[in-house]
Design a protein around this nucleic acid. Structure first.
Lengths: 200, 200, 200, 200
DNA sequence: AATTAACCGAGACGGTACGTCACGTCTTTTA
DNA sequence: TAAAAGACGTGACGTACCGTCTCGGTTAATT
């Protein structure tokens, strides 16, 4: 097993592969994605894919990231000073994303790969979820500094309190994801953050 | 397309198939589960599987349920009158389940199938998740009647506030799932439930 | 590795595979023959070929035999009493076969496979060459009984003396294979066998 | 299409390639010989092979010749005056060569390439077989001049009568190649040539 | 009790995709 | 500017499973 030399890598092929993978998932869903189809669509040999990616899932994660990373330059949450308004805004936006059929399909595919492959799980968490969570934590930190949030509140858990319910409902489809729902979650979270002490 | 007659179904084969499916997932993971392997292990013709189940995922869901349904007769949460203690108990139990390698593997497999196949999603939600959520909702309703929880609190969302964060952390593996973490979430939820008013 | 059950074998597929293999060699030569092409042309899954034949060469040998075995019912050489005439006839016929482009291609392919694969060599020798050599030996035995051939002549070597030169020239293409050449070889062989009759 | 300049050719690479090709065939047989393996073993770029040889077979023929040409400076047959003895000597030597596993493998590989590729067939015939046949023809010519062989005997065919049977038996493996067999063939040939000397 | 329909095990079949190998071409870097 | 190194598009390999389709051979339930 040789390790290929990245300096000699064909950028043209890389782009074509990522583009083909992304488009194929958009058209037929992730379950029907095959390496052969990616190679055919990209006009590329299968070996070129196997040379640079360890699995189909890894290709797709890369494809997803290269398509979405452009816009996500600024992950920072708005800080209008009104925490309630800012959180509503971001949670409603997330609800909208999950309600977009295209993004919904992609995101579910990402979760599936993440569940099947620890390496991909690590990458997705690090490159997609963590930055997002950190941006939200940062916003809460600001509110904490402004005295709007209890000083001893664990903000790492707080962001999960915010996103977890939406995530849970999205994956399990237990009920529709609406703006109203987002607002309700925000109210609960705001209530939780005003708690100043935890026994024991 | 014939519809087979359930009366003539071989119970022996049904058991063998479910057992084989369960064991194979336990041994090699859900991703490596194949119909052929189930049939071979169960000493059964492939057609017998295709006759009674629409997909590999459906077999596995059945297998999972038939193995776990024994114990789950009593889903009701304890009601000691101490809501904090009761919620901690149940959330710590869930954390323990997710930390059990066997159950972890099975549960992730269930989620994967659920994400890939709407029919299975419906079944899993209805047969596994909903009963559990409802039991928790029932416990909160009791607390609400006892005046420990704000009267206007949306308990459907409240249970998601409780389980969502754990679920989020479990799937994404953003951080370890500990009893301490469970307790922290419970504190937040208790704080949220004491909020008596929601603006707008 | 399971051994398949010949009773369940599809005769239709077998025929289609042999036909496709034969036609493909006739069209493009043996070097360009592939299992994939045979499967595609025969409308058959590749596995069906791998299930019943150990190699591409084995398929081709079978194909060749099933196409030629019809005519070869009577391998016996003519016995007009005139050994010279009979041997000329058979050696000229062989020269004609080697000069037929189709048969030439097929026969060279057979030799190549025979050289590469001992199992195929055994089969070709036993099923194609030996019967032919034996028929010729039988004719010489008759002549020996009739006193036209020296009593102590080793007829097994004699038939090689007859066919070997033609074979040598055919494979190495050292010179053209003509009827005249065949006749010359026959004369030498008759001389070697101490046959005293005058030529022409 | 550039024609490379032979003056700039690397002698070191040429030697390494021929050596690698020869050794690889000796180790694993001709069927498993690949250009990639030759290049790797020789520490040479694949292009260097493609630049100077038209095919894998051509490399091997060159490799074979460069390994064997050293010894074959003198192809001339012995001429002791005793034709029987001289022919026995040369035919027994050939039988010995075919019975040597290494030479057997190489020679079969040569025949395979010769059958597959007319260009190689021409080269092998001209550079290996023809010189040998001509040397034998020359010996027979001497015998003819000495009155030991019929004046009108076609010596071109006569040498095929000598080598053809051995060749036939070697390729088809119809029976073992022994010295006794060689002697028997010689006797037949001497008979065919009307040589009158008594055997032994 | 004999008949008959179904389910059953077994596994061959036409397919699709896998991941690998080697081909012959092409490009970059080194000497 | 040939040579080494090796990435590339291509195509075939042999394997794993898919879901469908016969085959006998048990079972039931019906005659």
């Amino acid at each position: 097993m040789k390790t290929p030399n990245p300096a000699r890598r064909s950028e043209r092929s890389r782009q074509a592969i990522l583009g083909a993978a992304f488009d194929l998932v958009a058209e037929s869903g992730y379950a029907r994605l095959t390496i052969e189809a990616i190679a055919a669509r990209a006009g590329v040999g299968k070996q070129t894919i196997y040379r640079w990616w360890p699995s189909k899932g890894a290709v797709f994660v890369d494809a997803f990231l290269s398509r979405t990373s452009d816009e996500e330059g600024n992950l920072a949450l708005p800080d209008t000073g009104d925490l309630r308004a800012d959180l509503r805004l971001v949670l409603r936006a997330i609800v909208d994303e999950y309600n977009d059929p295209g993004l919904d399909t992609m995101s579910r595919a990402l979760i599936v790969e993440s569940l099947n492959d620890p390496a991909i799980n690590t990458e997705i968490t690090a490159r997609i979820m963590e930055p997002h969570l950190e941006a939200t934590r940062e916003r809460l930190r600001g509110a904490q500094r402004a005295g709007q949030v209890a000083e001893d509140a664990d903000l790492g858990v707080a962001v999960e309190l915010l996103y977890g319910p939406v995530y849970h409902r999205w994956i399990l489809r237990t009920a529709p994801l609406t703006h109203e729902y987002a607002d309700t979650v925000v109210e609960f979270v705001l209530g939780a953050l005003r708690v100043t002490q935890a026994p024991r």
